[in-house]
Amino acid sequence: MAAQVQFHQVQFHNVTLGYDRHPAVHHLEGEVPCGALVAVIGPNGAGKSTLLRGIVGILKPLAGSIDLGGLDARDIAYLPQTADIDRSFPISVFDFVGTGLWRSTGLFGGIGKPARDKILDAIAAVGLSGFENRPIGTLSGGQMQRVLFARVLLQDTRLIVLDEPFNAIDAKTTADLLALVKRWHGEGRTVLAALHDMEMVRNHFSETLLLARGPVAWGPTAEVLTAENLLVAMRMCEAFDDGAAACAVDDGRSQAA
């Protein structure tokens, strides 16, 4: 069983994440091995975004903990579902993508010739060569998504977290960006992506976490995406219950302890 000694990039220890004490993800246990390409799927409100927000440290767990395998939360490249980006701000594609170098430049670090080349390469890698000087406000939705991928590329992190990166993106752009995701996978980076497109998950992602407030199934994609599991996920109750009592699972645990 030598395979079990592999390193874990992310480990969930009985993690509960939520808002205002109401959990959105309940008692998640498990681990993401280094270099894994994991799809996180589930119906709307299943807690996919919440889980990813927890991983990158924007949301503190209500209970349990998330172990990042020694990685600082700031060393994760995170692409949120609805990026809160002020598109009217006068900043060029080049400068915007360049912010991905923050880890190496910080507050004052200069951006020399090597860094400039890196930025240009990243812009070229997402197929936006020639757009360097365009203000971000003039880009289309798909182009903006390419820009965000270029920034993730430039962040050059071991763990990449993508929250529904292909929403409202056309087939061509999706294919290009998916190729980039596979390239990251090939480079040994760990990639977690919240997705909706089952076909894409089946064809491109080796591992899947099916989420419905709690983990329904987690493992090799073919074993997770069974009709039975999906039905269980679909039945998930979405609404918060204002009158909900404190979680019984926790009670059981604390009494046992």
């Binding site: 700031r74 994760i76 949120p80 990026a83 910080g106």
Partner: peptide, 19 residues
């Protein structure tokens, strides 16, 4: 630099820095 990034994409700055 942090002021500009915070103006454009505050969430990004939060994930990479405390500045």
């Amino acid at each position: 630099r942090p002021l500009v990034i915070e103006s454009v994409d505050p969430l990004f700055l939060r994930t990479v820095s405390r500045a």
